[in-house]
């Protein structure tokens, strides 16, 4: 038992944190609310150069060939920066699904270019019904008629759905999902859909940890300088206790996400349950942190001129995406409570 990351994993996290602080500052994020793509110009290819887009792709296809446990900290950093790119859909879900389930011809056509960022992949599922970044993507994986299909964006008719988070450009697919090519069908497709949900939920949970940490940092910084009654409001117990609760919620959610990542990497038989635990708890923890952050900021946090809402709305969105807490609690209940088996072996 060694429940900790390696120095290499921590080093990659730190370098990505620095890179995103420079390349995706709050101003760039804010611009994504109103630009044409919801994406930061030029950033996608830089993420490709860094290896992040192909982190889980095989080395034969030009990727780094790393596992979920190597991806969880980079995804947390993407959350910390509230990165407005379809990183989860592309790097954490679509690429591994294409590699694991698609015929070789599809794999070879798309994965090498996805790894560099030349093309963008995204995905629609029953558990992820709104397609993030579909208008700027090249290939959309869709569940249609009992099969998982790979459909080029140009074949699809899309309708924009407005997310509470203006940097998340969501679409529903109006028509065309039966086109393109089949990735897999039957039992394989059901397995692929489950795997995609596990991968997407884990990646969203990791981002929620980073988002929660970012809003907590922002709030701690604010209450140290905001003065009322002649003192920093952070010296008042009412504020301290709120923020202690926020830190406790976040720190106790964190190991569940890391454990789920290790479970996924090891293809543990219970990995879907571990992912559901992680996503349910990361969602509720991040939402609790956001609620506390807003309260401790007071009216300034309620203004869209201040940055807090950019992070808070991403938290709301990701808590709902890739299975909301109720969906994941139901998955846990079905597996653990409804059975007769032992809870712990």
């Amino acid at each position: 038992m060694r429940f900790a990351f390696t120095d290499d994993q921590l080093g990659f996290r730190d370098s990505l944190r620095d890179m995103l602080a420079n390349e995706c500052p709050p101003g760039a994020l804010r611009a994504c609310w109103t630009n044409d793509t919801g994406r930061v110009p030029g950033l996608w290819r830089k993420l490709g150069d860094l290896g992040l887009l192909g982190i889980s792709a095989s080395e034969e296809q030009g990727g780094l060939g790393l596992a979920e446990v190597d991806m969880v900290l980079p995804l947390e950093e993407a959350g910390r920066a509230a990165l407005p790119e379809p990183l989860v859909e592309h790097a954490a879900v679509a690429i591994p699904i294409v590699e694991a389930f698609a015929p070789a011809v599809l794999r070879e056509r798309w994965v090498p270019r996805a790894v560099t960022g030349e093309v963008t992949l995204t995905i629609a599922l029953d558990d992820a019904p709104f397609v993030l970044g579909a208008d700027s993507a090249d290939l959309v994986l869709v569940w249609s008629g009992g099969a998982l299909r790979a459909v080029e964006r140009s074949e699809l008719t899309l309708a924009r759905c407005r997310s509470v988070d203006g940097a998340r450009r969501l679409f529903s697919i109006v028509s065309g999902m039966g086109g393109g090519e089949s990735i897999c069908d039957g039992e394989r497709a059901i397995e692929a859909a489950r795997d995609a949900l596990d991968r997407g939920a884990l990646a969203a949970a990791a981002q929620l940890l980073g988002l929660g940490a970012a809003v907590l940092d922002l709030t701690v910084g604010y209450v140290k300088v905001r003065e009322q009654f002649g003192k920093p409001i952070g010296s008042f117990q009412a504020i301290k206790h709120h923020l202690a609760n926020a830190l406790t919620a976040l720190e106790m959610a964190r190991p569940l996400v890391y454990r789920a990542a290790a479970s996924m990497a090891a293809r543990d038989a219970s990995r879907s349950i571990h992912v559901s635990i992680a996503k349910a708890r990361a969602s509720t923890a991040a939402q609790q942190v956001a609620r506390i952050a807003l309260q401790c900021h007071g009216a300034i946090g309620y203004s869209t001129e201040y940055d807090l809402h950019l992070w808070m709305k991403r938290i709301w969105a990701l808590a709902a995406a890739w299975g909301d807490p109720a969906r994941h609690r139901a998955r846990i209940a079905a597996a653990v409570l409804e059975g007769e088996g032992q809870v712990y072996p």
Binding site: V223, K224, K231, G234, S235, K240, L247
Partner: peptide, 8 residues
């Protein structure tokens, strides 16, 4: 709050 978050 005081030791981990360094609040005053």
């Amino acid at each position: 709050a005081e030791r981990l978050l360094k609040l005053p």
